[in-house]
Amino acid sequence: MENKLLTLLENDATLTPEQLSKMLDKEVGDIKKLILDYEKEGVILGYKTLVDWDKTSREYVTAIIEVKTTPQPERGFDRIAEKIYNYPEVESLYLISGGFDFAIVIQARTLREVALFVAEKLSPISHIQSTSTHFVLRRYKDKGVIYGAAPEVDEREIFGE
């Protein structure tokens, strides 16, 4: 039940408690309470909309920045992570295995803004050794959703066997 409800909402946050209750064969009140509990416990962290900004006039640039660090003896990576993720332009931050320690996904308005972020905000953070910035040329798929494809149309015949 727990996973079913969360999976349904993860795939489509617009499902109403009424719809969910009927899909899962539960009372509406129970579903509302479960969702509220998840929100309180921080299992559900928020609800957002997937927007393909390429279809709008908005100018933006996305970059993936790899960061190499020397972790602090006492606090490991967490302190450095905190310093990075508190910048609002940081969309995602991951601690990763391999040649680098962190991967940052950042969205900014211009290339220059990304450059300034790296030069003025990221690099000065203590224990950061080096960075490597990759600009995103095109987003094909994000959060399981394909971008740039034509909107889905039901092409099945209206009446059919």
């Binding site: 039901d154 099945r156 015949e157 209206i158 009446f159 059919g160 066997e161």
Partner: peptide
């Protein structure tokens, strides 16, 4: 709103 077809969506 068609709810008629006999094939998967």
């Amino acid at each position: 709103i068609s709810l008629t077809v006999g094939q998967p969506d």
